[in-house]
Amino acid sequence: MDKLPVDIATAETIMLGPDETVILASCADTNDDLFAVEIRMQPGGGPPVMHSHEPSEIYFVREGVFSIYVGEGEDVRRIHAAAGDVVPLRGGIPHTVRNEGDRVAVAHVVHTPGRPMESFVREVGAMTVDGAPAMDDVLRVAMQNGITMLGPIPEMT
């Protein structure tokens, strides 16, 4: 435990497009129990499609506002989560997270179990180093890690 406390300024950072993922606790640090990160999402950032995965996750918003879309049966609900808000998402629920604001949004996010999410972030991050990866490659990595891409956010009524 020589890495404690975590120094965010020097922690490993992985870029997923324009968004930063700072590793706070890896699966190696937590016996695969969890994957904890700080995400710094640029305006317009975040996954453009709804998706689902077995790991549960919890967002603690530190700065800005996140729009979190959650599938509820046939409907999708949009949650605006601002600084200080905590949003838990159970595994298997369709969702996506976007920054629809005009400034950077920051949140601490914990995934449990962590391995599928950490593997996805690391693999797609490695593909992003030389520019945007091919969507087929992202979909392949998602499928290998149990992440199901469900398509665009449905129209909200």
Rank of each mutant, 00 (worst) to 15 (best):
H108T: 14
L89R: 07
P152F: 05
P113V: 06
S26H: 05
E57P: 02
G17W: 05
F120P: 02
T157G: 08
D33N: 13
M149I: 14
I153S: 04
A83W: 08
E74A: 15
G44M: 11
F120H: 02
G46S: 10
A11I: 02
G17A: 07
A83K: 10
G64E: 11
D136R: 12
T128S: 15
E54R: 14
M156P: 00
G71H: 08
Y59S: 04
E100K: 12
M149L: 12
T148Q: 13
D19L: 01
I147V: 14
D85H: 14
Y59E: 04
G84P: 11
A25H: 07
G84W: 10
I68E: 04
H108W: 05
T96L: 03
E118Y: 01
E74W: 03
G151N: 07
P154T: 10
V37I: 15
D7T: 10
G131N: 09
V97C: 14
A28S: 13
V22H: 00
I14D: 06
T96H: 07
I147S: 01
V76Q: 05
I153H: 03
G91Y: 06
F66E: 01
P94D: 11
V106N: 03
T128A: 15
P18W: 00
V65L: 04
V110D: 00
P48N: 12
S52W: 05
A126D: 12
H108P: 00
D19W: 03
A36P: 01
D130S: 12
M1V: 13
H111T: 04
P18Y: 01
